[in-house]
Computed example of a mutant assay.
Amino acid sequence: MSYVPLNINHIKAIVFDLDNTLVTSDMDFAWLREQLGCPLSSDLLSYVDDIECSEERARAHDVILNHELEDARTSHPMPGCLSILEFIHSNHFLTAVITRNCAEATDQKIAHNRLNIPRVITREHFPPKPSPDALIALAQEWQLQCHQVLYVGDFLYDLQAAFNAKMPSCLVTHGKEVAFSEQASLVVDHLHDLEDFISRHLIHA
C-alpha cells in the first residue's frame, strides 16, 4: 500500500477519526480481546459480528458498548482539537467524523467534549474502516472529488481507508515513532501542526 498525494490547495473538506485523533481514548483492546476470546490476528469487530450464537454475539456487543461508554465519559480533547475545528469552520471547510465506534458512545463522546461537528458516521452506518465506503459516500454527499477530501487519523486503519477511497491522508503521531507513517500523505505530531500547515498554504495560495 502507498498513499494518495496531497495537494492542500485542492482540499475542500477535512474529515477526522475520533479516538486518539480528536479526543482521548483509553480503550483496553487487550482486555476486550481476552474477555471475548478474540485472537490477535483477527479484527475485533469482525470477530464479534461472525459469532454464530445470537445470544453470545449480543453479549459480546454489550461488553464492547459498555467499555466504549465508559471511555466516552472519561475522554477529553486532544491537543489542538478545539483550535483546528474552529479554524476549519472559520475557513469554510466541510468537516465530519468517521469512526469505528458505535453511535451511542460517539454521540456521548462528542457531546461530552463539546465538539462542533455537524456530520458523524459510525459503524452502524457503513462497514468500519479500513473499508472506504463511509469516506466515498461522504464525498458523494458533498459532491466532491475524492482528492478534495483529507482524512485525518492516528492508526493504520485510517490510512488504509483513505487509500482505498483514493483520498489523501494525514497521520497524527502524537510525537511517537509510528511503523506505518510512510503510508500517510502527510505526517504531523499534533493537530496544531496540521492547522499550521494548512494556514501556511492558505496564506501563500
Rank of each mutant, 00 (worst) to 15 (best):
N66T: 15
P77D: 04
I64L: 03
S2Q: 06
N113H: 07
H89D: 14
N116V: 09
F126W: 06
D49L: 12
W31N: 15
H192R: 08
G37K: 01
F29Q: 02
S54L: 04
A105P: 05
T95Q: 09
I51M: 14
F126A: 13
T122E: 11
G80D: 01
D154E: 04
E68W: 11
L150T: 10
R59D: 12
E86I: 15
K166Y: 04
H112Y: 14
F155Y: 09
D62E: 13
I88W: 04
N113F: 07
C146Y: 00
L22M: 03
D26F: 11
A30T: 05
Q183N: 14
E70W: 01
P168T: 01
L40H: 10
T74V: 14
A111D: 13
I8H: 01
V188H: 08
P168K: 06
S2P: 09
H190Q: 14
L40V: 00
G80T: 00
E182N: 13
S41E: 09
H147D: 13
N164V: 04
R73L: 13
S169N: 04
H192S: 14
C81H: 04
H61T: 06
D26R: 14
L65Y: 12
M1P: 10
A205S: 13
A137S: 14
L191Y: 10
A205L: 07
E141C: 07
M167Q: 12
C102N: 12
K12N: 04
P130G: 12
A165S: 08
Q145D: 12
A137V: 06
A184N: 08
Q108W: 01
H67T: 06
E141R: 01
T21L: 03
K176S: 09
L6A: 14
L45V: 12
S75R: 01
S2E: 02
L171I: 03
L156V: 09
V97I: 15
L32F: 02
K12Q: 05
L159Y: 10
I14A: 09
L65C: 03
Q145H: 08
L135W: 00
V152F: 13
Y47I: 07
V15T: 12
L40D: 13
A13G: 06
L194A: 11
H174K: 06
H147R: 04
N66H: 14
R119S: 15
L156N: 06
H112W: 09
Y3R: 11
A134T: 08
F16H: 05
I14C: 08
P77I: 02
T24S: 15
L115F: 01
K109W: 07
L144P: 08
L22V: 05
A179M: 00
I84A: 05
N113Q: 08
I51L: 14
S42K: 07
P118M: 04
A58Q: 06
Y47E: 04
H89K: 10
D50C: 03
L191S: 12
F163E: 10
L156H: 13
L159D: 07
D50N: 10
D50I: 00
Q160T: 05
L85M: 02
D19F: 15
L82Q: 04
L202N: 08
C53G: 10
L150M: 07
A162C: 09
L94Y: 06
F155N: 15
N20A: 03
T95K: 05
N116G: 13
I98S: 02
P79L: 03
A13L: 02
A111Q: 15
L115T: 14
K12I: 10
